[in-house]
Nucleic acid binder design. Structure first.
Length: 556
RNA sequence: GCCCUCGUAGCUCAGCUGGAUAGAGCAACGGACUUCUAAUCCGUAGGUCGCAGGUUCGAGUCCUGCCGGGGGCGCCA
């Protein structure tokens, strides 16, 4: 079953192909590039339902003026589409504006309703097994607001990719080995003894809580590594609880320490793998990976001169492990403060013998909290931060998730705490939810029997004499565009597009609500049609909100 | 210093990989509630898309150079 917009697109491609077949092919065999014309909503009213730039793209290939080609293309398209195409006009430099029939709009609603929860799903041309690792903050303190952005991004992206047809596993990698962990243990021990934390240790109040919580932390024979392990267990549980409250659920929590265990360990095997590729050498007593072969600034140490593995080696082994578990693609949202790391990661991935395209680090810009016009600093070690839990207490899960996903991940995000606290209604999420609740209220008033009957009576919707209202046509086209929007959001790793879509859909619905009476509309066939439009809209709003991890309430 | 990244309305941000007269929300101002939910709607105002060049039929979008914000440049994690 092809969605309504794709139907038009395919007709357009067919018409373009017919034109190419009849015209002189200037491009010749070598330049036989596929023309990929746009099919988009015109920005201004009165320019039809869809517009295409196909004629302008074909012009250089066919050696004729764009407007002349547009005329030919329009005629061909009219032949292909039949009654679906009511009219076309040539505009501007060679745009072709298309006006579609009411019947096409009704078919679109039927399609949406028939698709149900599967609407706009499965569009991926090449479904992949994807490992999506996100947040992966070290459990050396509470989850902070910046983690909340990564969590919202990763989770929404996972949902969108899955809806698009991919198989996605959400993964959280945590470091429970290495010197930072030792410092955590030392900090807890110091607090348990009523002392100041050592230089470079962790100073937050939560360290004191841990000191009280872990029995024997203040004993004279307490070992940093043992205490740290207990602290990490507790902290990881807290991280998990916060993220679950935030509606983020992982498939796997991956412990770095497991990479160090066994003989040979995963680290040993990783080194052997890149050594076999000829990318390893010894220098100054250390073991290096020649990452410069793959575009890195300088080579990187795998084993320090004292024999201790670097964090980088663990990452190398981790990438290999993901691969061994059968993931074709690794998606890796990382904070901007780690972006200096991506060149060596990609290099390491290649050193393992892989196509670098299959490792996708996504650089996320940071989140800043603004209070009193000043940016609040967030550092775990200094104990200055606002936790995600605190933010959730202030403005709630729905508003927080929506806010985090509103802006593109490659832009820094400022959260104004005064606004977040006092005027949470400013968040557009309520507008979207309100549209959903409003529909729920209307449908409730109508009763489930009437609604079911209206949806089932698709053949009788409206009557030929009743031209659809412009607001109805706009709303239907917004609904019909979801498959394209999902594809864009998935392929560009851009969940924030779905927040834009949600807002636009809610706006189109509200305009429809303003202009078109639903309950009690006459004749009954019109009421039925509009009920069906409402059901399709509600279903789609719920679907999009679900992808964003935001609730869709029936009343507000 | 070198590298990465961002710069669009007063504020927060979209802008569908080059298309028509750059759009929303909030804030501001003026209106609308015996109504299918006013957490709403209608209207007004608000822009040199950081600056300057370049590429072409056409640039917020691509290229170069500046300016400004953020980040990164350890045998740290």
């Amino acid at each position: 079953m092809t969605d309504p917009v794709s139907q038009i697109r395919e007709a357009l491609l067919a018409a373009a192909a017919a034109l190419r077949g009849s015209g002189p092919d200037e491009a010749g065999a070598a330049g036989h590039a596929v023309v990929a014309p746009n099919l988009e909503r015109p920005k201004r009213a009165g320019q039809g339902d869809y517009a295409t730039n196909a004629a302008m793209l074909l012009a250089p290939k066919l050696g004729k003026p764009p407007r002349e080609i547009a005329e030919l293309l329009g005629a061909e398209l009219a032949r292909v589409l039949g009654e679906t195409l009511v009219s076309y006009e040539i505009a501007g430099p060679g745009f072709l504006n298309l006006t579609l029939s009411d019947e096409w709009h009704k078919d679109a609603i039927r399609y949406v309703l028939d698709s149900g929860e599967q609407f706009a799903s499965g569009g991926a041309e090449h479904p992949e097994r994807i490992n999506l690792e996100f947040v992966s903050a070290n459990p050396t303190g509470p989850t902070v607001v910046a983690n909340g952005r990564a969590a919202a991004y990763g989770d929404a992206l996972a949902k969108i990719l899955i809806h698009h047809g991919h198989s996605v596993s959400r993964e959280y990698y945590f470091n429970d080995a290495g010197s930072q962990i030792d410092r955590l243990g030392e900090s807890v021990i110091a607090r348990a003894r009523g002392q100041e934390v050592p230089e470079g240790g962790y100073q937050g109040d939560y360290i004191v809580d841990l000191a009280n919580e872990i029995p024997g932390a203040g004993d004279s024979n307490a070992q940093a590594s043992v205490i740290a392990a207990q602290a990490i267990t507790i902290l990881l549980q807290q991280v998990r609880a916060t993220l679950e409250r935030y509606r983020v659920f992982y498939d796997t929590f991956f412990s770095e320490r497991t990479l160090h265990q066994g003989s040979p360990s995963a680290l040993d095997r990783a080194i052997e793998s890149v050594r076999a590729g000829g990318h390893v050498y010894e220098h100054d007593g250390a073991t290096w990976l020649r990452t410069t072969t793959f575009g890195d600034d300088k080579d990187r140490v795998l084993l320090r001169s004292d024999g201790a593995p670097t964090y980088f080696l663990a990452d190398l082994a981790y990438m290999a492990d993901k691969q061994a578990r059968g993931f074709e693609r690794q998606l890796l949202p990382v904070g901007a403060d780690h972006h200096g790391y991506v060149a060596r990661l990609k290099a390491a991935f290649q050193a393992l013998g892989n196509d670098p395209e299959l490792l996708e680090p996504v650089i996320m810009q940071l989140v800043h909290l603004v209070e009193g016009g000043e940016r609040a600093k967030m550092s775990k070690r200094r104990g200055e931060f606002v936790t995600l839990d605190e933010l959730l207490d202030e403005i709630g899960v729905d508003a927080t998730r929506y806010f985090m996903l509103q802006s593109s991940h490659d832009r820094t995000l400022d959260i104004n705490l005064e606004v977040a606290r006092k005027q949470s209604n400013e968040n557009p999420v309520y507008y979207v939810q309100y549209a959903h609740a409003r529909i729920a209220s209307m449908l409730k008033r109508l009763g489930p029997e009437r609604v079911a009957e209206a949806v089932a009576s698709a053949a009788d919707w409206s009557s030929p004499a009743d031209a659809l209202h412009p607001s109805e046509r706009e709303l239907v086209k917004k609904l019909a565009s979801l498959p394209v929007e999902i594809a864009e959001a998935a392929e560009r790793r851009a969940p924030h597009r779905m927040t834009s879509y949600a807002l636009e859909l809610a706006q189109e619905f509200t305009a429809f609500y303003r202009d078109c009476k639903v309950v009690g509309a006459e004749p009954e066939s019109v009421e039925s049609w509009r009920i069906a439009v409402c059901v399709a809209t509600q279903q789609t709003l719920a679907l999009v909100l679900e992808l964003l991890g935001v609730s869709a309430p029936d009343s507000m």
